[in-house]
Design a protein around this nucleic acid. Structure first.
Lengths: 343, 343
DNA sequence: CTGTTAGCGCGTTCAA
DNA sequence: TTGAACGCGCTAACAG
């Protein structure tokens, strides 16, 4: 049985040289037209353009990158690609890059330093033109070291240095607003589900919580604070822990929406009504929060904008100019999960 | 004021040639060690390895790609990078690629054909080694055309052709199971929030719904079917529409979890209890569904596995071998949002 | 305005 | 086993 046909015979790719040949010009002329780096006579331009159309030519971005010393790609070190929180940020980045011809390479660090280092190394091996680090556990020193190779924008903390821009939302202020909202509704026994203690965000949010209590003359009770890990299951655990320890409270401030979802479920399992029996407020304002039952009061964090600004700032950094991005303040979004404490 | 220091003086990158020089061997030898494509004497190998370590050399993936005719990257055309559904799939892809040195380039088509075409063109320009198309609106013919350039794995439908693999979950069977579950609980007036009519998934799910009804001797009532777009807000609208049309029903089968969330909210707004007054079942089993209040009964779709298999199959396709992936069946996950019809 | 030449950083012949 | 020479596809510097 004759089977001469190669099974994987892919269509031959069209190169710039082929375009040049069919247009009857030199490769440089084609290149000039592509990059727009010099004047070309109209007739040649027409010939080249028709050749491009005829052959359906697509420039090889890699080769171009090799020649120019840039890759038209940036790296994005995220922690968990499927997290709703990062999803928002990624979309902001995508949108900011739209039309620039630059693509984002998303890699996940999973909150593990070793993974993060590995991914960063990988990105550098791909010679990305810049990197956006969405929080994570790398030290400031490590960030600075990477910045010696490539411009970096890091979110979730402040890092100073050459070729580095950092941006963070004001967690302290957000947490303060959340707690104050509960206080204004008459609550005094306010529990707090904190995030990981080695997380700057969590620490700041805890501080904001304490500050608001203090201002209202409510003394801080460490028994009312329980630690979780920013994911739903830990929110369930946190509430169970609180209840089993027989702590009494009329409101809960969860350090992020995901733990608030978990908390909500724990209340449901114990037939504790929200907000009739207990008020609940989160932090982040994830897209799903308006669909929680009841819709979750929370602190809106400009995550989309964060991603968008990070990308824009990085582009500036890449082209060598300095910028400073200002992020909107986190704002209270009062929905239905918080309620005035009855008489 | 003298300021001779270049502001953006990046550390010089180490090339293979530099490694060769400090190791006192030729570039080819270094290359051989890197690729492992030939025997090299132990002493030279040692010299090279120590030079690599000393200089902290990282191979340039692009240059390697140019030379080898491959880029060690694959494209992933998703529709909405922040959707929880796609998030799961992306994670499956990421995990399947782990350790292969191949990175995924995620691009979003936003369910718009023109965008999809643009992104595909972009991916081809970057000479990705293969492409995973997560559903979308490209025609089978277009997919086949792209497959002439690069291997393609497409999900959500069946496309035959050279260098193409397709995989889809059995929507029909899943919808059948969902509806049957409601029927077995004694429901007869079962509304269905369908998805977009030009979506193969939606059509199949509608068919499965009808099949189950038919088998149970319940006649199909088109007034009980209302169309939505797979997103939360349309689920709210769908329920409002149904209620305003004064349709009576005791259960709802939403064609995906996101519309189920919307439906749940609509019920909440009207003080209709779930599942006491109405049972609700979704489709997909998104991570958030177990945290809906009450936890959502749904059809578990192996989205993570879908992504994982797609990536694995693509890798096979790239290396020229044929494979066929078998996906697990969608399964019923009965949680708390469905309940036996009283009386 | 245009063509020729020389790399970008690597892998891979081909001889030795 | 090893090195020199060449090419991947493109841009940039240099002449003309």
């Amino acid at each position: 049985m004759a089977r001469n046909q190669e099974p994987n015979a892919y269509q031959q790719v069209v190169t710039l040289a082929m375009v040049a040949e069919t247009a009857g010009v030199s490769p440089s002329t084609v290149s000039r037209i592509l990059t727009g780096h010099a004047k070309v006579s109209d007739d040649k331009r027409a010939a080249v353009e028709s050749a491009i159309a005829k052959l359906n030519y697509q420039p090889n971005v890699l080769a171009r990158g090799l020649a120019q010393g840039r890759t038209l790609s940036i790296g994005v070190l995220t922690q968990d690609i499927k997290s709703p929180f990062y999803g928002e940020a990624l979309r902001g980045i995508e949108d900011a890059l739209e039309g620039t011809g630059i693509v984002p390479l998303f890699v996940s660090g999973h909150w593990i330093v070793q993974d993060e280092v590995e991914r960063m190394t990988h990105l550098l091996g791909r010679r990305v033109d810049g990197i956006i680090v969405l929080t994570g556990r790398l030290t400031d020193e490590q960030i600075r070291e990477y910045a010696r190779r490539v411009p970096i924008v890091v979110t979730g903390r402040s890092v100073k240095g050459q070729n580095i821009a950092s941006m963070r939302v004001d967690d302290f202020s957000g947490a303060y607003k959340a707690t104050k909202h509960l206080l204004e509704l008459g609550h005094r026994r306010i529990a707090h589900i904190a995030g990981p203690q080695d997380h700057l965000d969590s620490v700041e949010r805890l501080k904001g919580y304490r500050k608001a209590l203090e201002e209202a003359g409510v003394s801080f009770d460490p028994k009312l604070v329980v630690y979780a890990d920013f994911h739903e299951p830990s929110g369930v655990l946190a509430i169970n822990q609180l209840i089993e320890a027989r702590q009494s409270f009329t409101a809960v401030f969860a350090s992020n929406d995901q733990t608030a979802y978990g908390a909500r479920l724990a209340f449901h399992q114990r037939n504790i009504r929200v907000p009739e029996d207990v008020s609940l407020i989160g932090f982040d304002d994830l897209p799903g929060s308006r669909y929680m039952i009841p819709p979750l009061s929370t602190i809106h964090q400009p995550v989309y904008e964060l991603g968008q600004s990070a990308a824009k700032v990085l582009l500036k950094l890449i082209e060598g100019s300095k910028t400073r991005a200002t992020l909107p303040e986190p704002e209270l979004v009062a929905r239905e999960s918080t309620k005035r404490l009855r008489g």
